[in-house]
Design a protein around this nucleic acid. Structure first.
Length: 858
RNA sequence: GGGUGCUUAGCUCAGUGGUAGAGCGUCUCGUUUACACCGAGAAUGUCGGGGGUUCGAAACCCUCAGCGCCCACCA
């Protein structure tokens, strides 16, 4: 125990030292044999860029806040940290690095490439871990990094086989989203739709008797047309159905079919059917036996149409095809630009090409039903509830999930093919027969991520961890990955764990925006760097800022000023604690009997208890912003601005035994309460104050109902009003705060008792004086002996302002009381309040008017 | 196209029926025995527009306008 705190603190120093101390003491390590109730929290896989993103800083701040609180409440807490994040982003980064040496992944081969990714990943992953530790995360990192070739791999094999055996995984040739740049299939949510200025051209097919005009935005795909479709009831085209029409440029004859899917109102009412390059067309083609003509390769280059367009890029071909058609006089109409939604790869923004190919899919219907029901029937809560409709909307209308990716970085699909197209799905510990070859594709990263809540606990083997910590208590994450990750964990959790959902609560927070509420982006350069802010303001300041801005499900704007404000708050607390300790604040000994305390001490205890109970409720409801707001105002306003000020007199006069003990108690409790949001500085101050081991393992503060003291609160509010009024008077009179004024309180006994304390704060010298000026606040009159006469103009202005505000208040009260409807229907409590207001304002007006009349004319 | 959210002080945002709030910024004063990363005081809003419900609306309902986000295989 150090007897005093340094005049200033260095965040970097205390952060590094304390983190080491906490880890060494084993505070963060969960023990599945413990008998405490479990509190498990799932945290998202960190990103792969090698540096802490502000969004992750927010994630981890909120998660760690909950974990620290729960730990103090006596729970056995466990984080489920994720380090495994396969997929395109990682692969792209390493491929780019490789490209610097002039090589491609094909050049060095699959094995060498994967090894290279691992090397890079452990490096960047390690960097992120260090950065999160700096933030103060109390993650049990001994469970970190379930890797591709350890526990998670077994889990992937197990669930793949289980799904396959139940017919929930299948392989099929379908139209999928293909990125010609990443060269892989993508799931629906990896495709972003945004408006592009394209073209919309009407092309006349056929010759002579049999002609029909179709409309398209992708003219080049006509080379792969297998039919033209119209609506069955469309009278314009009824006579053509069943006939064959000449396909220009390709010089083939294709049938005209009728299908309900066609909108007669749209375009010309006739649609070209390109079975292999459009999902809609694919559906119709299956129904009508239209052939699949593939005319483009995986790079988006025309290939296989047997025309002169082969070898052209798809966009070049589009222009060329339109030109060729124009020269044949077949373009009947064209709109350019034609703005319409086009799919883009969410990673590289390349325009998605729908492509017919053989892929693996998860049949989601039964899984999604279960995942929706778990929330519908209340077994899983989504916080805030407003976001639940978004979840239902998505999960109830989900298409089958394409899980194969043509990448090298990820879990290999555990399927082997025999020489005669035999298919063997390989489970854990199983092997395919000799001569079989494994599917070259890997699984979508969210496939393995979906296993997180139970695979990290050792599933599929049943052990103590899994029994104790599943289902998890909470998932705290941004709403942006509700579909990517959350919904998929729900589906797989329910499936693998016999219908038990993976979490009790899904708490969704918003995203961090820039200071003007705009989305952060690299191209705009408005991103913020959490590391830089921690360097400059400390981890506590960053954490408190993020927590203070976190309203459930709502985005928060973040600027450097905000963090500076939190740092100021930390400094304020530091100085207040230093002052308290210099004046002998202590946590030793019994708290004095309540009845024996003065009103100021009673008041601060009452405020403390109220704050504790409100903060506790708010944190349990994931209302971080409101909780922080209460702590902030209790600490700064109630404690620093009023309690410490009002206590200075007793410290100065040496009559402060009660106050020392009460102050020590309040600080002790406040630090416990704030520890989850400002772990480092509270730990430092608390251990200095109490001499005890650590706040991490201290008990969470409990509100004491017996400390709630309405009378004391009322009295202190009165004292505050008096002090504020005298300060106003001094200010308006231009009297320096440092100048002492002889004064006297004319007040009821219960106020008079605090005259000394107030005089100390107000720099008044109490004594028998000749009054030359005074202030009146309700029943209290403060008289001053001013050496010079008062500034009557300033005083008149002050009083007139008070008068007009009192008159306004009186008027609104009168209007209400004269309103028959109000008198008849307003509740009694409101009536009483308004009557009191009327009485009070009436007295005020009388008092001020008298004072004004006594002022010398100027 | 379908959802959904927002619009409150200069800026960013709280506020789910009873006299409009916070942080930052602004103005004035001030180094008094914790703190200038401070203290004291002050200014600032027909709560997006228009209707309605109510004794009473920033809040509830309708409508219009603007902004944002999510979802969407209309060629």
């Amino acid at each position: 125990m150090s007897d005093e705190l340094a005049p200033s603190f260095s965040p970097a120093d205390i952060e590094a030292a304390l983190y080491k101390k906490w880890v060494a003491a084993g505070y963060f390590t969960a023990d599945s044999a413990s008998t405490k109730p479990p509190y498990t929290i799932v945290i998202p896989p960190p990103n792969v860029t090698g540096s802490l993103h502000i969004g992750h800083a927010l994630d981890h701040t909120l998660q760690d806040t909950l974990v620290r609180m729960k730990r103090m409440k006596g729970f056995e807490t466990l984080w489920l940290p994720g380090m495994d994040h396969a997929g395109i982003a990682t692969q792209n980064i390493v491929e780019k690095q490789l490209a610097v040496t002039g090589l491609t992944r094909q050049d060095i081969g699959r094995e060498a490439f994967v090894k290279k990714v691992w090397e890079w990943k452990s490096e960047s992953g390690g960097a992120i871990l260090d950065q999160m530790r700096r933030l103060g995360d109390s993650v049990d990192w001994s469970r970190e990094a379930f890797t591709m070739d350890s526990g998670l791999s077994t889990a992937v094999l197990t669930i793949f086989k289980k799904l396959y055996d139940q017919g929930l995984i299948y392989r099929a040739e379908r139209i999928i989203n293909w990125c010609p740049s990443c060269l892989t299939a993508l799931s629906d949510i990896e495709v972003d739709h945004h408006d592009d200025a394209g073209e919309f051209v009407q092309v006349r097919y056929g010759e002579g008797e049999i002609q029909i005009t179709v409309a398209t935005t992708r003219a080049e795909t006509m080379l792969g047309d297998g039919a033209v479709a119209v609506h069955p009831d469309d009278m314009r085209y009824k006579h053509l159905v069943g006939k064959e029409v000449l396909l220009p440029l390709a010089n083939r004859y294709i049938p005209i079919i009728a299908d309900e899917l066609v909108e007669p109102e749209f375009g010309t009412g006739a649609v070209k059917v390109t079975a292999a390059h459009d999902p809609h067309d694919f559906e119709m083609a299956v129904r009508h036996n239209v052939p699949f003509v593939i005319i483009m390769n995986e790079h988006g280059v025309m290939d296989g149409s047997g025309t002169r367009f082969d070898g052209m890029d798809r966009f070049v071909a589009r222009k060329a095809v339109v030109e060729a058609l124009r020269s044949e006089g077949r373009i009947m109409d064209e709109k350019r630009p034609y703005v319409h939604a086009v799919g883009h790869c969410s990673r590289c923004d390349t325009t998605i090409e729908p492509r017919l190919s053989m892929q693996w899919f998860v049949k989601v219907a039964p899984l999604a039903k279960a995942a929706g029901d778990a929330v519908r029937d209340g077994r899983v809560r989504i916080e805030p509830a407003e976001l639940a409709p978004r979840y239902f909307d998505w999960i109830d209308n989900m298409h089958d999930w394409c899980i194969s990716r043509q990448l090298w970085w990820g879990h290999r699909i555990p399927v082997w093919y025999g020489p005669n197209n035999e298919v063997v799905v390989v489970g854990p510990g199983e092997f395919a027969p000799d001569g079989y070859t494994q599917d070259p594709d890997v699984l979508d990263t969210w496939f393995s991520s979906a296993l997180w809540p139970f695979s990290t606990l050792g599933w599929p083997s049943s052990n103590a961890d899994l029994k104790k910590f599943y289902p998890t208590s909470a998932l705290v994450t941004g709403y942006d990955i509700l579909f990517f990750w959350v919904a998929r964990m729900m589906m797989f959790g329910l499936f693998a764990m016999d219908g038990v959902p993976p979490f009790h609560t899904i708490a969704l927070h918003g995203l961090v925006r820039d200071q003007f509420g705009k989305k952060m982006s690299k191209s705009k350069g408005n991103g913020v760097d959490p590391i830089e802010f921690m360097d400059r303001y400390g981890a506590d300041a960053l954490r408190f800022t993020l927590a203070r801005g976190a309203n459930p499900g709502k985005d928060q704007a973040l600027a450097e000023d905000w963090i500076g404000g939190s740092r100021n708050f930390a400094t304020k607390l530091w100085n207040a604690t230093r002052f308290a300790m210099m004046n002998g604040a202590t946590t030793h000994g019994e708290l004095p009997a309540l009845e024996s305390l003065n009103a100021v001490n009673k008041w601060i205890l009452s405020r403390l208890s109220a704050t504790i109970s409100e903060v506790d409720v708010l944190l349990e409801q994931y209302e971080f912003a409101r909780a922080c707001e209460l702590m902030y105002h209790f600490a700064w306003d109630d404690l620093c601005d009023w309690y410490l000020e009002l206590s200075k007199k007793s410290f100065a006069s040496g009559d402060s035994t009660d106050t020392k003990r009460v102050l020590g108690f309040v600080l002790d409790q406040l630090f416990r309460l704030m520890h989850p949001v400002m772990p480092f500085i509270t730990e430092t101050m608390w251990t200095a104050l109490t001499g005890e081991e650590s706040l991490v393992i201290a008990k969470w503060p409990i509100a004491r109902p017996e400390h709630i003291e309405k009378e004391a609160e009322k009295l202190v509010v009165e004292l505050q009003e008096i002090i504020t009024e005298v300060r106003r008077f001094r200010n308006d009179q231009g009297i320096k705060t440092s100048q002492k004024i002889p004064a006297r309180f004319v007040a009821p006994e219960y106020i008079q008792e605090y005259a000394g304390a107030m005089a100390f704060v107000l720099r008044l010298e109490l004594g028998d004086i000749t009054s030359s000026a005074h202030c009146e606040i309700g029943r209290v009159r403060v008289e001053f002996d001013l050496t010079q006469s008062i500034d009557a103009v300033a005083e008149r202005a002050r009083l007139e302002k008070d008068l007009s505000s009192a008159q306004k208040d009186k008027q609104t009260a009168e209007v209400k009381l004269n309103n028959a409807g109000f008198m008849a229907k307003a509740p009694e409590a409101v009536l009483v309040e308004i009557r009191e207001r009327l009485a009070k304002t009436t007295a005020e007006i009388e008092r001020i008017t008298t004072q004004l009349s006594l002022l010398p004319r100027t």
